[in-house]
Design a protein around this nucleic acid. Structure first.
Lengths: 129, 129
DNA sequence: CGGTATCCGGGAAGATACTG
DNA sequence: CAGTATCTTCCCGGATACCG
């Protein structure tokens, strides 16, 4: 898509665009939620169980991990599978849609990684003034 | 970069990764902040003045627009130029770094746009259960 | 093991009014 | 024109405790 931002914006607005209910921002909000990005990255390398995720992501609480997983499940990006064993085990994995999200998301992560020192410097300069 | 997510995570963790202070997430938080995305998209098509942005983005308040612009300026993504006229006029435009951000960001917007109905459907299905 | 339920504090954001 | 200032409200997220 060689679409410019202006094109997109124009189409959105012509479409009766409601910034309070913008699907793109709703998705971005989820992606940028405090723990979601780390959850997605952990699951990208394969299915994991609840406590495995809890251990893999330092400082996340049970409550927030559960909520992040529920949000992702609701968006159809993650699938939750319960195995009827004793004690019960629950597996989370990315759906096909979840994996396709990782493509553009990787690019954004790369950008942020490569620019992080430049941004840090800019912040120092700004704060000095 | 054919880097997998697992590679990235491993590197981060080996690096003494603090999820509370992750540069990538800090940047993503700004990008995904309520109004930032729209501001960036408006500025991508060229410099704009404060009130032009205010008019272009429905429902944004003066306060929040100011804060969004300050955050972007602080990150070095936007430049603020004051012209000493009467009445004064102030122009905002993307920096070079701001423009490079739009590349991966466009890809993510495209993904979100193309998946928005699928996600909406998934949500309906989830909520029905 | 894999969650819920409940309480609570702090920061984000809206409304409104004022200013150089 | 391009902002501040102040107030208030809301909700995210942490802490803690309990459950099938």
């Amino acid at each position: 898509m060689a679409d410019t931002m202006a094109d997109r914006l124009e189409r959105w607005k012509a479409d009766g665009f409601d910034p309070q209910n913008c699907p793109v921002r709703r998705i971005l909000d989820h992606v940028a939620a405090k723990w979601t990005l780390l959850v997605l990255m952990e699951l990208d390398s394969g299915p994991k169980r609840f406590n495995a995720l809890l251990r893999a992501i330092p400082d996340v609480s049970r409550r927030m991990l559960t909520q992040s997983l529920r949000d992702l499940e609701r968006d159809g990006l993650v699938i939750r599978t319960v195995f009827d064993t004793r004690p019960p085990s629950v597996e989370y994995k990315l759906t096909e849609g979840g994996h396709t999200l990782m493509v553009p998301l990787s690019a954004l992560i790369d950008w942020a990684t490569s620019q992080s020192t430049a941004i840090f410097d800019a912040q120092m300069r700004y704060d000095a003034a």
